[in-house]
Design a protein around this nucleic acid. Structure first.
Lengths: 290, 290
DNA sequence: TCTTGGATGAAATTTTTGGTACACCTTTTG
DNA sequence: CAAAAGGTGTACCAAAAATTTCATCCAAGA
């Protein structure tokens, strides 16, 4: 088995380049295949062998021999490689979008922020406005009781959300993730309740359990998670995924926070008639404290 | 066979957009498929149905029903369309300038995110790398004891920071803002302590009081605040301001969060030798729980 | 001119993939 | 609370794609 094709770990010499280099050593049929591929790189190679061969004016076996000669184990393998290259290329402009990072210490903050900006863009792209609006609608329903919860790290986001919604509307609370702390509260959860759960990678079993229990009792689940979707997605009515990968050993929750803040903003606007007096009342209470 | 793939003349409504629009009319399984596709658009759809279905967490038939519902005659037809879109997009870098919906009915989330991006840029601009590095240095000193605190809303950020730093290093805790809860703890605060305080507009008197007391006893204060600077700035050794204005009745804490996450990333890297075993230990403890 | 060896494609074969029928379960409706 | 409708997955089948086999062709050398 030819396996000269060392896996392309960080090596960007595109396949196209290699083909150009080896062009002379190709047979006539192979040259035709090569020319077709290069002239419509890499899309020509994404069809079936038959299609590729026909377009190149050769037979399927010749096309096969061509890709085998390039070191691939078969046509599917070849296509997989092309898709990989394409994906890397299309995704790189995003990573490349940070002109600031100079490779050394100082701009740690800058490059991190740039990555977060990329995450935010990607997050917004991937959330359907209708889905977002539906969640706003749900959280604006005064007859619903809203419960926020989250995991080890995301619990803080849930608290953040809760502290805002608590002022905008009534019937808002925070539930700790540990089962011992919510088991007995579940008796009151029903169709009128909404659970807003935050859960990203290293999905936490206790949060999942909470949501599953609540869902079973008829509660509506709203999930803020990562693009790989927490298992809670299985019982969630609405899922809002945020991109979280950052140049760090940790994931970034910025996308989740921004979704949260956008929700707060939208619901506040939606309920302005009732939210305004509430906010004023809170203000008054705070000022009179001293 | 000629590739009838007529280039869409002026028709750029990408499939992704349509999916977002129709998102709420989908069945649960279809939503999963849609989320997978959107989060890895369009590459997730270029694999086989089986692969696609597995990744989405659904069965192959459901995946099939999904693409049929979108109007395609079958999976190959669907893939052909995706490839067509990809080709069109890649061939016209101009089209990339305006990725999707712009201009008009800018969804609430999108415009909010844009504002946040602006805030992040401005925030990064206004923080001196030296200041940032100094804080990293300070938080990386294992002899220091780090305390996080914050106000009504920013307290959640302090918790978020604490939950990360707690894993990276020892001697980390969270202090509630209410004076009754910290008065007696102050006896232990001294030169070896660092207070990291989060405080933005509607600066909270109790947090200020906490920092002033701590500073008086020799603690080092690090302040994350807004550009107008919390009164805590008067006693703070380091000040990291973030832009917070958003199209909302509320301020956005995204800038503060990003600074926090960048600090966590930098300190983790800085202390990697000791942080790594700690992180592994936490992982182990968590896995053995059940 | 004959021989030889690589190159090529038609056809047969094998493998993989897409598609469908049907039963089960969940949810909705009367 | 029962019946109906809709959604989902398992098991199966059909289609089509990839790959191999093998006869043929063509060019270079004896």
């Amino acid at each position: 088995m030819k396996q000269g094709n060392a896996a392309p770990p960080v090596d960007p010499p595109s396949l196209a380049e290699r083909i150009r280099l080896e062009m002379d050593s190709f047979t006539p049929s192979e040259k035709r295949a090569a020319h077709l591929l290069l002239s419509h790189y890499p899309f020509a190679g994404l069809d079936t062998v038959a299609e590729f061969a026909t377009r190149a004016g050769i037979s399927a076996p010749s096309a096969l021999r061509f890709v085998t000669r390039l070191g691939f184990s078969g046509f599917p393998d070849f296509q997989k490689h092309l898709r990989g290259e394409l994906e890397a290329q299309l995704l790189s402009p995003l990573a490349k979008a940070s002109p600031t990072d100079k490779g050394q210490g100082a701009p740690a903050l800058a490059s991190f922020a740039e990555a977060v900006v990329g995450n935010l863009r990607a997050t917004v792209e991937n959330i359907a406005p209708a889905e977002f609006d539906a969640v706003v609608e749900l959280l604006s329903d005064p007859r619903r009781h809203i419960h926020f919860t989250g995991g080890r790290f995301t619990g803080a986001l849930a608290r953040y959300a809760e502290s805002h919604f608590r002022i905008v509307r009534s019937s808002v609370d925070f539930i700790e993730g540990q089962p011992a702390l919510w088991r007995d509260r579940m008796i009151e959860i029903g169709r009128k309740d909404v659970i807003v759960a935050f859960d990203i990678r290293r999905y936490q079993e206790d949060v999942t359990a909470l949501c599953e229990t609540a869902a079973k009792q008829g509660a509506t689940i709203v999930l803020l998670t990562d693009p790989w979707l927490s298992p809670i997605a299985r019982v969630a009515r609405h899922v809002l995924p945020a991109h979280i990968v950052a140049p760090s050993n940790w994931d970034s929750s910025a996308g989740l926070l921004v979704i949260t803040e956008a929700l707060v903003a939208a619901v506040t606007k939606r309920l302005w008639e009732t939210a305004k007096p509430r906010m004023e009342a809170v203000e008054r209470l705070r000022n009179q404290k001293p």
